[in-house]
Amino acid sequence: MGLQNSEDAPTHLNFFRAALRGRQRVLSCANDPNVCSDREKNPWGGYTCCFRRFCKDTLKDSDNCGGCGKACGYGLVCCDGKCVDVQNDPRHCGSCFEECSGKNTCAYAMCDYGG
């Protein structure tokens, strides 16, 4: 029994290759920046056409947070277009919009850590 090298072989690798080819084709917005807001052509999201190439979600994408090319620093996460430290921010503790109640502080991504 030999291994199949055909592109049609039902392997995970071929599936991902096909998915990536399709995704790149759909997400390219070089010729039409409005393609980003068309959910039929762009079901993956991202309303902003960055660098005339790809649709990006500038509200959640840490590489394009709040605008194209505005990358969050190391350890920061993009929450609603702002870079936040989910390890220590009581309004975004552990993940975006996970707010600590009352006067609880956020440490190590947990509300009221240690007491």
Rank of each mutant, 00 (worst) to 15 (best):
C68R: 04
G46I: 05
D80V: 07
D57N: 07
V26A: 11
L59W: 00
G102N: 05
R17C: 02
P33H: 04
L76P: 00
A19N: 09
C106T: 10
G22W: 15
A109L: 06
S101C: 08
S6E: 09
D85M: 03
N5R: 13
L59T: 11
G73I: 03
Y108G: 01
L3H: 05
A109Y: 01
H92Q: 07
C50D: 00
R17N: 10
S95T: 15
L3C: 07
N14A: 03
R17D: 12
A19F: 15
R91F: 15
D32P: 02
D85E: 05
P43K: 03
L59K: 05
D38I: 01
V77P: 00
A9T: 05
P10T: 01
L20A: 13
T105N: 14
D8A: 13
E98Y: 10
A30G: 09
R17E: 09
G114H: 10
C49G: 01
C68T: 08
G94A: 11
G45L: 11
D38G: 09
S95E: 12
S28D: 14
R21A: 15
N64A: 01
D61L: 03
K41L: 15
A30P: 02
N5M: 09
C78H: 05
G46Y: 01
E40I: 08
S37C: 05
G115K: 11
F54K: 01
R39D: 15
A9P: 04
M110D: 14
R23N: 03
Y113T: 13
S62N: 08
Q24L: 14
G102D: 09
C79Y: 11
S95V: 10
H12S: 09
C96Q: 10
K70N: 15
S62G: 03
C29V: 02
G66A: 05
N88A: 13
N64G: 01
P90T: 04
G114D: 08
Q24E: 05
C49A: 03
G115T: 06
S6R: 02
C50Y: 02
N34K: 03
L59G: 07
R23D: 08
G66I: 01
P43Y: 06
G2R: 01
H92I: 02
A109W: 00
G73N: 09
C29I: 01
C50A: 01
V86F: 00
S101L: 15
A107I: 02
N31G: 11
A109H: 02
F16R: 10
A18N: 08
C72P: 06
H12R: 07
T105C: 12
G73K: 06
G46N: 07
C36L: 11
F97R: 13
Y108T: 09
D63N: 15
Y108P: 00
G66Q: 03
S28I: 00
R21I: 10
C72S: 07
R53N: 07
Y47W: 06
D61P: 02
D38F: 09
D89K: 00
C55Y: 06
